[in-house]
Design a protein around this nucleic acid. Sequence first.
DNA 1: CTTTTTGCAAATGATTTGCATTAAC
DNA 2: GTTAATGCAAATCATTTGCAAAAAG
Lengths: 148, 148
Amino acid sequence: MPSATIDSPLVDALRARGQRVTPQRLVIHRLLREQNRHMSADEVLDEVVERLPGVSLPTVYATLELLEQLGLVRRLGPTGGRVLFDSRLDPHHHVVCSQCGRVEDLDAAVETAPALTAARRAGFADARAGLIVTGVCRTCRCPRRSYT
Amino acid sequence: MPSATIDSPLVDALRARGQRVTPQRLVIHRLLREQNRHMSADEVLDEVVERLPGVSLPTVYATLELLEQLGLVRRLGPTGGRVLFDSRLDPHHHVVCSQCGRVEDLDAAVETAPALTAARRAGFADARAGLIVTGVCRTCRCPRRSYT
DNA sequence: CTTTTTGCAAATGATTTGCATTAAC
DNA sequence: GTTAATGCAAATCATTTGCAAAAAG
């Protein structure tokens, strides 16, 4: 009976996918489990090099993407790489394709009031809420085939 | 009695702030009102140069930022310039400071089910929802003064 | 041993900046 | 006339890529 360590979820997922367990991956994963804050790739590198000198930024990026695919971290922010501007001013939300970055409007009633209240309580003024739904769009889902 | 044109909201806001009404600003604003889609700065430039040759990318960026400040467009995507990774895996939301980019967790119950359903109906699979609240944090609000 | 992962250096792409010129007011 | 806004070229920043060397299984 293997005792569940902090590494287990990562190690198990890697083995299940036939991928390798490297010190870089372990250290980055541990760091993220320990730190209870949002970190950029840069910040991760800074902390990681202290424990494992020589680690490179590209490795950090690759590992973070891997961890995201394994469901072990959540990516925040740019879902595609660029900023988009929306001319619709009425309240509505958005769906973003996690593969191609396509953004579509989403008309759905979502009760954002409690979140706005919580934000104000946290010290944020002029709060506005927007729901971002992430998923895989039809086009990206249908492999190599025009709309059937 | 000035008839309300499509330009009015922009022109009025500019005058109110003592800023200048330039053809670039008018054309970019009109374009965004007409097009009913999300556009990147590049895409805006492409369309704008057809109507006003010689317009530059920096001007497009500056104008889009201005329009955002005036509340005439909404910015989607990178609220700060970089991606952040969140190690919290349980459902929660985020507040982002629109000035400094600071991101904090937000624990508030938000009913995302209807949005997820709408996304599926729109053809998106594996949909996950995250609420992003944008506002100005306390630190950015208190001008030039450490926490009082 | 074989194949994946790494580190390095260089490339890419979006956005921003400095500055002289032009155009609003 | 004054001052803000523009266009241009170059800078910056985060992220990605190509490839040979190192390491996991």
